[in-house]
Computed example of a mutant assay.
Amino acid sequence: MRKLLGTLTAAAIAVGAVLTVAGPAQAAPALRFHSTQYDSPGKDTRSNASLNTEWIALVNTGSAAVNLKGWKIVDKSATYTIGNVTIAGKGGVVYLHTGKGSNTARHLYWSRGNYVWNNTGDTATLKTKAGKTHDTCTWKQKSGRTKVAC
């Protein structure tokens, strides 16, 4: 009986150790593409002003702020890796502009000299730090439209 109790106690301790090591599963951040202005208003001149009116926006619908460092916004022709930027919770929005500028908490700049998003249709992909696809935004050309909600 003593041997059986000793074996059961050892087994209970081993199971307890395993259970305390495993923590709760981490939920994926509530990030998604919000909208994009894929066609700059007016003539496409490739001026910095024109490039910066082409943008894509992320929204955080969760309650907690999320640090985006290492996340990527990907197009088939280019990839933007986000630096040390935190997007606020409860509707926080961050815009990624195509042209040059000084990054702020809400506005990031790709520093490209050419447009990224195709006016005839395209797909943007949001990838986690680990490289997993987290969200996509796909659009087709709409007559008279230059901006879409994702």
Rank of each mutant, 00 (worst) to 15 (best):
N67A: 03
G16P: 11
S40N: 13
H97Q: 06
T81S: 03
R2V: 14
T136W: 03
T53A: 06
T138I: 05
T138E: 07
K3M: 01
T9M: 14
T98W: 04
C137K: 04
S63L: 10
G144L: 11
T20E: 09
E54T: 06
R112P: 08
L31R: 04
P41L: 10
I73R: 11
A105Y: 00
A28T: 05
T45C: 06
G23N: 12
S143V: 12
R106V: 09
T81L: 05
H97V: 05
C150P: 03
I87W: 04
A49K: 13
T120I: 11
V18R: 00
L5K: 13
L96E: 07
V74R: 09
V93E: 14
N67I: 05
T146E: 14
L126K: 01
N114P: 00
W117T: 13
K100C: 07
N119R: 10
T81R: 06
G70I: 12
N103Q: 11
G101T: 13
E54Y: 07
A124W: 04
K140I: 15
K147M: 15
A149S: 15
Q141F: 09
G92H: 10
K100P: 06
I82T: 06
G144N: 07
T36R: 04
S50V: 13
V85L: 08
L51D: 02
D75I: 00
T136P: 00
T79F: 08
G62P: 01
H34L: 04
A10C: 10
H134Y: 12
V18Y: 09
K72H: 01
T79K: 11
A149F: 09
T45S: 11
A14D: 00
P29L: 02
A57H: 14
T125C: 08
T45Q: 10
A149Q: 13
Y95R: 06
W139M: 03
G99Y: 03
Y95H: 07
G101W: 13
K147D: 13
A149I: 12
G70R: 03
T125I: 07
P29I: 09
Y95T: 02
K142F: 08
A88D: 12
Y38T: 04
K100M: 13
V59E: 12
I13A: 15
D122I: 04
G89L: 12
A88R: 10
N114G: 01
K3P: 03
S102D: 15
T136F: 03
K69Q: 02
G83T: 02
V148Y: 09
V116F: 01
D39Q: 14
T98E: 06
G23D: 09
S111A: 15
G83F: 02
D44N: 14
K43F: 15
N118Y: 11
A10T: 12
I87E: 02
W110H: 11
P29K: 03
R112F: 10
K140E: 15
T61S: 12
W117A: 13
T136G: 01
L68P: 08
G121D: 12
A57I: 07
A27M: 02
G92S: 07
L108G: 02
A124K: 05
K142P: 04
T136K: 08
S35R: 14
L8P: 06
V74H: 10
G62Y: 06
G83L: 00
G121W: 08
K90A: 09
K132D: 09
D135R: 00
T45N: 09
L58N: 01
A130H: 00
A130T: 01
T86K: 01
S102C: 12
T7P: 11
K72V: 04
K147P: 02
Y80I: 03
